[in-house]
Design a protein around this nucleic acid. Structure first.
Length: 484
RNA sequence: GUCCCCAUGGUCAAGCGGUUAAGACAUCGCCCUUUCAAGGCGGUAUCACGGGUUCGAUUCCCGUUGGGGACGCCA
């Protein structure tokens, strides 16, 4: 049975890199009918918050990455908060101490800091001196009685090498002498990440550890702990990092990295998943639009790339547009309504009373919007009483100054006479404008501008029909009042 | 600095010893068109470098260079 896990620490929102790590784990679990486990790494009490936790869970749910065991739903290997597993960790610390595989270290932070500086000035890598490794028993007792704080270090045999079997990178070899007797428990009795992660993965029966490449160099440390404790070593898969445009690890300084913000900005989860899955992985390089089911079916760790991939907002935006265009209009309307409401274009009453109108507007904009949030600024003239002209719109009027009055009056008569039904009004406009000696390009542009205030938008006759007779006539009168 | 990982167009990427080196995004033309999109057609653009191995290297090996990551009593 495949068991994988995603283990975020609740010290902030779920960022893009985390989301993709979660996604790859989830895909692997679903593909193999395994379990996807969510574990919260909240041993850093200072920085962990409840809000962060909720935000992370929210984003995972938004993406549809459902977990089989986790903090909110429990499971047979709980608890799923590391902060609730302290006694377990301490038990294993004691075990290593008893078996003489670890020792207490009374060195202070200051002492270590000095050694570290010294190593740096001598241009060599810092390694713990091993000063406390062979303290005589009586000295340890003495120090303990004197309540001198201590950390616990694991003994690392300097001979030999540690081989990581990685499903993506093959065998990665580290010489053991690059490691020192590293700390596994802090002076405040809190075990460190590299220790607890091993205990949890072992006890939770994790079979495959799929995580970011930034953890690759932690892995030899963890393997030593697995071995010291006699645990089975899981398979590893270190996935390439997501990079910013400058090719360094994607982070805040590259711009927006929070999943939650992508949601707010009107990205669709299916588009986001599709894009993320194809970052660092591709089934054949051919497919770019894939449903979640297809991705699950095709996913394999062996086809994951080794090199990091730059996050390309532009391509994500394009893909989001593809998904928006594929949405059926009822669903899309529902998705757009919150954005229209938030920008003050519609009220709860409008949603009840003018639903069909809203839907028409959304349908007209469907092929233009790349994110849901774009619906608002593209559609304001459908909802506002008074429109304002953009700079480009003003230019159009300026350019066609001498014809404006004729165009508008002709239009007014047409609407009064035949109404606004698309087919009728189009035919009539074309005929009457020609009679009046006005070129299509001129009247089309002028009408668009006086009805919408902008030079861009859906088809003109769609606009007229959707706005309706009253609104069209009102905007015509307003323009005539301006006296050209 | 030490250790580790990586290297096909601007970006995502196919390729797994013999190819005119796919495809997508972006970009640039053209078409469609009342505008903006969408769509259609076409163009520009890639194997980091140097050695091997081989009849033949983008592909295998070794170096160089370049990029990245890790080196905490953070996770």
């Amino acid at each position: 049975m495949v068991r994988v896990r995603f283990a975020p620490s609740p010290t902030g929102y779920l960022h893009i890199g985390g989301a993709r790590t979660a996604l790859f784990n989830w895909l692997f679990a679903r593909e193999h009918n395994g379990k996807f486990i969510l574990r919260i790494e909240d041993t850093d009490k200072e920085r962990s918050t409840e809000e962060s936790l909720n935000e992370i869970l929210r984003s995972l749910r938004w993406l549809g990455l459902n977990w089989d065991e986790g903090p909110d739903i429990g499971g047979p290997y709980g608890p799923y908060f590391q902060s609730q597993r302290l006694d377990i960790y301490l038990k294993y610390i004691d075990k290593l101490l008893d078996e003489n595989k670890a020792y207490k270290c009374f060195c202070t932070k200051e002492e270590l800091e000095e050694e570290r500086k010294k190593a740096e000035s001598e241009k060599r890598a810092f390694k713990y001196s091993g000063k406390c490794k062979n303290l005589p028993e009586y000295e340890i007792k003495q120090k303990e009685q004197a309540k001198i704080p201590y950390t616990v270090r694991i003994k690392i045999d300097q001979e030999g090498e540690t081989v990581i079997k990685d499903k993506i990178r093959g065998e990665v070899v580290f010489q053991n002498f690059v490691l020192d007797d590293f700390i596994i428990m802090r002076a405040d009795k809190m075990p460190v990440y590299n220790f607890v992660v091993v205990i949890d993965d072992a006890l939770m029966q994790i079979t495959h550890v799929i995580r970011g490449e930034d953890h690759l160099s932690n892995t030899p440390k963890q393997i030593h702990i697995y071995k010291a404790l006699g645990f089975n070593i899981p398979e590893f898969a270190h996935i390439p990092l997501i990079l910013g445009p400058d090719k360094s690890k994607l982070s805040k300084r590259h711009g927006e990295t929070s999943c939650g913000v992508y949601e707010k900005n009107g990205f669709l989860p299916e588009a986001f998943i599709n894009y993320l899955a194809l970052l660092g992985w591709s089934p054949d390089g051919e497919k770019t639009e894939m449903s979640v089911d297809e991705i699950i079916k095709e996913f394999s760790l062996e086809k994951v790339h080794k090199a990091g991939a730059i996050f390309d907002n532009q391509k994500l935006l394009w893909l989001n547009g593809v998904y928006i265009r594929k949405k059926n209009i009822n669903e899309l309307t529902e998705l757009c309504i919150p954005y229209l409401k938030e920008s003050g274009l519609i009220t709860d009453d409008d949603i009840k009373n003018k639903y069909e109108y809203i839907k028409k507007v959304v349908a007209l904009q469907q092929e233009k919007i790349k994110t849901l949030s774009e619906i608002s600024h593209l559609s304001d003239y459908f909802f506002k009483d008074n429109i304002t002209l953009t700079e480009d719109a003003k230019k159009i009027l300026e350019k066609n100054k001498q014809d404006i009055k004729k165009v508008i009056e002709t239009l007014k008569n047409i609407i009064i006479e035949v109404g606004v039904e698309k087919s009728k009004v189009e035919e009539k406009i074309r005929i009457d404008m020609e009679k009046a000696g006005i070129k299509p390009k001129v009247f089309m542009h002028v009408i668009r501008v006086i009805l919408t205030g902008t030079t861009i938008g859906p088809g003109l006759f769609d606009i007229i029909e959707t706005l309706g007779k009253d609104v069209c006539l009102k905007r015509i009168e307003n323009t005539l009042a301006n006296d050209f």
